[in-house]
Design a protein around this nucleic acid. Structure first.
Lengths: 178, 178
DNA sequence: TTTGCAAGTAAGTGATTACTCACATAGGTA
DNA sequence: TACCTATGTGAGTAATCACTTACTTGCAAA
């Protein structure tokens, strides 16, 4: 992985996440990344495959992020950690994760691949297990709602100031008694 | 409003909602609507203004939809009716409402206009008032969460079968004791 | 030293984009 | 009848799109 390759990936990630996939041209990516447009196609083949590559990298990041949760036994800590993680991401790593979360509006086919990936299934399992341990009557639906809330947080939190972000996360925690 | 004008509006609404704004060309709209491409610009000026027009019509629909809620006094009925309305929309009028709900991924500027429109503020008020009547300790945050859930439902419900749709809505109702 | 190959570029390609313009057609009014 | 205006069209426009091609450059192995 050369420096220019990384430039392309970082730039594309930023632009896809902020402007959207179809709204971002390959010529703009090249210009912002400081490379010739042809290089994008030399390394990644097509604009589609470039997005695909970013999603794959996102899946890797996701795997690293949930790794500590797999061994965690306290269900309350699991839910709490996830919400803290969201807050951390929105403040520090937004672009990287926003792309994954808004993927369904960028490219439905690639989104499908992502949402049926092993990590997402694993994430589901971890959360469902937590709700089961906590004796929630309907852990499956509870998980679906929790995942829905997490995803939507990425679309509203970035527009709020830090205080509101934190107090809203704390409010959600209180709804789950954590 | 001539028949061809309405064709353009209906077709654009369908395509913007399903394919996305930037992914829908004016030539495709014209072809699907059975009119010449020039007519779109004669009547609406630009692709942007066409979207704007659709959003304005959406705001009108929204006003009609929440009108009955303004006079409703039972807070539980308000929340319940809103969730039922979501279910009804997803099943019968999806395209029309999906555009509004996914607007932030289509055109951030126009989305801003929509989300700061009078109707949305009113909707917020109605829900917040309901939570206040029900003595929820934090009605403002509760409203934000409720709106967040409603918005996100438009992105996940359409992919599920009718039984799952209904049971998930009922699950959410049960979370609010309705 | 020579060879070979990956990295990188500049200048293209045809297709498609949003949009314009000259013109045709109809229906109502003076 | 003559004229006007709104509705509508088809063939354009320049710009931009994703992508290709012919061509360097730099570096490492033979």
């Amino acid at each position: 992985m050369t420096e220019k390759q990384e430039n392309i990936l970082n730039t594309a990630l930023k632009l896809f996440a902020t402007k959207g996939y179809t709204n971002t041209s390959t010529s703009l990516i090249a210009r912002e990344a400081g490379v010739s447009e042809g290089l994008i196609f030399r390394h990644f083949g097509s604009k589609d495959k470039l997005l695909d590559e970013l999603v794959n990298l996102g899946i890797c990041d996701m795997e690293k992020a949930i790794a500590p949760l797999i061994e965690e036994v306290d269900p309350n800590k699991i839910l709490s950690d996830i919400l803290d993680f969201i807050l951390h991401v929105v403040r520090n790593d937004l672009e990287k994760w926003q792309l994954q979360m808004t993927l369904k509006y960028q490219s439905p086919e690639i989104a499908k691949k992502y949402h049926s990936s092993k990590v997402i299934m694993q994430m589901n399992e971890i959360i469902e297990n937590a709700f089961r341990k906590l004796n929630y009557p309907n852990p499956k639906a509870e998980t679906k709602l929790f995942m829905l809330i997490i995803g939507a947080l990425f679309t509203i939190l970035p527009n709020e100031d830090e205080i509101d972000q934190e107090s809203f996360i704390n409010f959600i925690k209180s709804k789950y008694n954590i």
